[in-house]
Protein backbone atom coordinates (compact mmCIF):
# COMPACT_ATOMS: atom_id res chain seq x y z
CA UNK A 1 0.00 0.00 0.00
CA UNK A 2 1.38 3.47 -0.93
CA UNK A 3 2.16 6.11 1.73
CA UNK A 4 -0.50 7.91 3.79
CA UNK A 5 0.06 11.15 1.87
CA UNK A 6 -0.28 9.48 -1.53
CA UNK A 7 -3.54 7.81 -0.49
CA UNK A 8 -4.84 11.09 0.94
CA UNK A 9 -4.00 12.92 -2.29
CA UNK A 10 -5.77 10.20 -4.28
CA UNK A 11 -8.84 10.53 -2.07
CA UNK A 12 -8.94 14.31 -2.57
CA UNK A 13 -8.39 14.03 -6.34
CA UNK A 14 -11.06 11.38 -6.88
CA UNK A 15 -13.34 13.36 -4.53
CA UNK A 16 -13.00 16.49 -6.68
CA UNK A 17 -13.79 14.77 -10.02
CA UNK A 18 -16.75 12.94 -8.46
CA UNK A 19 -18.08 16.13 -6.88
CA UNK A 20 -17.77 18.07 -10.14
CA UNK A 21 -19.66 15.33 -12.02
CA UNK A 22 -22.41 15.61 -9.43
CA UNK A 23 -22.82 19.39 -9.21
CA UNK A 24 -21.92 20.91 -12.60
CA UNK A 25 -25.28 19.99 -14.21
CA UNK A 26 -27.11 21.56 -11.24
CA UNK A 27 -25.09 24.78 -11.56
CA UNK A 28 -25.50 25.01 -15.34
CA UNK A 29 -29.20 24.14 -15.40
CA UNK A 30 -29.93 26.91 -12.90
CA UNK A 31 -29.19 29.27 -15.81
CA UNK A 32 -30.01 27.26 -18.92
CA UNK A 33 -33.14 25.49 -20.07
CA UNK A 34 -32.93 21.98 -21.58
CA UNK A 35 -34.51 21.53 -24.99
CA UNK A 36 -37.55 19.28 -25.39
CA UNK A 37 -35.48 16.70 -27.24
CA UNK A 38 -32.92 16.45 -24.44
CA UNK A 39 -35.67 16.11 -21.82
CA UNK A 40 -37.22 13.29 -23.83
CA UNK A 41 -33.79 11.61 -24.05
CA UNK A 42 -33.26 11.99 -20.30
CA UNK A 43 -36.67 10.50 -19.51
CA UNK A 44 -35.14 7.10 -20.34
CA UNK A 45 -32.16 7.56 -17.98
CA UNK A 46 -33.75 6.03 -14.83
CA UNK A 47 -34.76 2.69 -16.34
CA UNK A 48 -31.64 2.51 -18.53
CA UNK A 49 -29.21 3.16 -15.66
CA UNK A 50 -30.96 0.88 -13.18
CA UNK A 51 -31.20 -2.03 -15.59
CA UNK A 52 -27.56 -1.50 -16.69
CA UNK A 53 -26.39 -1.57 -13.06
CA UNK A 54 -28.36 -4.78 -12.48
CA UNK A 55 -27.35 -6.62 -15.66
CA UNK A 56 -23.66 -5.75 -15.26
CA UNK A 57 -23.73 -7.78 -12.06
CA UNK A 58 -25.04 -10.88 -13.86
CA UNK A 59 -21.91 -11.36 -15.95
CA UNK A 60 -18.15 -11.70 -15.54
CA UNK A 61 -16.09 -9.83 -18.09
CA UNK A 62 -13.41 -11.52 -20.23
CA UNK A 63 -12.18 -8.88 -22.69
CA UNK A 64 -12.19 -10.25 -26.26
CA UNK A 65 -14.66 -13.04 -25.43
CA UNK A 66 -18.32 -13.38 -24.52
CA UNK A 67 -18.85 -12.74 -20.80
CA UNK A 68 -19.53 -15.73 -18.55
CA UNK A 69 -22.56 -15.84 -16.27
CA UNK A 70 -22.32 -14.91 -12.59
CA UNK A 71 -24.58 -17.79 -11.47
CA UNK A 72 -24.92 -16.67 -7.86
CA UNK A 73 -26.29 -13.25 -8.77
CA UNK A 74 -28.41 -14.61 -11.62
CA UNK A 75 -30.08 -17.27 -9.45
CA UNK A 76 -30.58 -14.84 -6.56
CA UNK A 77 -32.21 -12.38 -8.98
CA UNK A 78 -35.11 -14.77 -9.67
CA UNK A 79 -36.70 -14.77 -6.16
CA UNK A 80 -35.83 -11.06 -5.92
CA UNK A 81 -37.84 -10.24 -9.07
CA UNK A 82 -40.73 -12.44 -7.88
CA UNK A 83 -40.73 -10.69 -4.48
CA UNK A 84 -40.80 -7.33 -6.32
CA UNK A 85 -43.87 -8.36 -8.30
CA UNK A 86 -45.69 -9.72 -5.24
CA UNK A 87 -44.76 -7.15 -2.59
CA UNK A 88 -43.99 -3.94 -4.52
CA UNK A 89 -42.08 -3.03 -1.33
CA UNK A 90 -38.39 -2.09 -1.54
CA UNK A 91 -37.52 -3.27 1.94
CA UNK A 92 -39.00 -6.73 1.30
CA UNK A 93 -37.19 -6.91 -2.05
CA UNK A 94 -33.79 -6.11 -0.51
CA UNK A 95 -34.22 -8.59 2.35
CA UNK A 96 -35.40 -11.37 0.00
CA UNK A 97 -32.44 -10.60 -2.31
CA UNK A 98 -29.81 -10.83 0.44
CA UNK A 99 -31.28 -14.05 1.87
CA UNK A 100 -31.52 -15.53 -1.64
CA UNK A 101 -27.84 -14.97 -2.42
CA UNK A 102 -26.87 -16.26 1.02
CA UNK A 103 -28.88 -19.45 0.40
CA UNK A 104 -27.59 -19.84 -3.19
CA UNK A 105 -23.97 -19.54 -1.97
CA UNK A 106 -24.60 -22.01 0.84
CA UNK A 107 -26.28 -24.59 -1.43
CA UNK A 108 -23.79 -24.28 -4.29
CA UNK A 109 -20.88 -23.95 -1.87
CA UNK A 110 -19.55 -20.83 -3.61
Amino acid sequence: MPSFNFVLLTIVGTGIVTWLSRIIPFVLLKKFQLSKGVIEFLSFVPIAIMSALWFENLFVQHIGQLPSIEWGNLLASIPTVISAIISKNLLVIVVVGVISLGVVRMVLGM
Binding site: A84, L90, I93, V98, S100
Partner: peptide, 18 residues
Amino acid sequence: FGLDFALVAMFIGLLYLQ
Protein backbone atom coordinates in the same frame (compact mmCIF):
# COMPACT_ATOMS: atom_id res chain seq x y z
CA PHE B 1 -23.48 -13.54 4.02
CA GLY B 2 -24.93 -12.43 0.69
CA LEU B 3 -24.85 -8.79 1.83
CA ASP B 4 -23.14 -7.68 -1.39
CA PHE B 5 -26.40 -8.51 -3.17
CA ALA B 6 -28.27 -5.78 -1.25
CA LEU B 7 -27.33 -3.20 -3.89
CA VAL B 8 -28.29 -5.39 -6.84
CA ALA B 9 -31.59 -6.24 -5.14
CA MET B 10 -32.20 -2.55 -4.68
CA PHE B 11 -31.64 -1.84 -8.37
CA ILE B 12 -34.04 -4.67 -9.24
CA GLY B 13 -36.66 -3.30 -6.86
CA LEU B 14 -36.29 0.32 -7.97
CA LEU B 15 -36.36 -0.71 -11.64
CA TYR B 16 -39.53 -2.73 -11.14
CA LEU B 17 -41.26 0.01 -9.14
CA GLN B 18 -40.26 2.52 -11.82
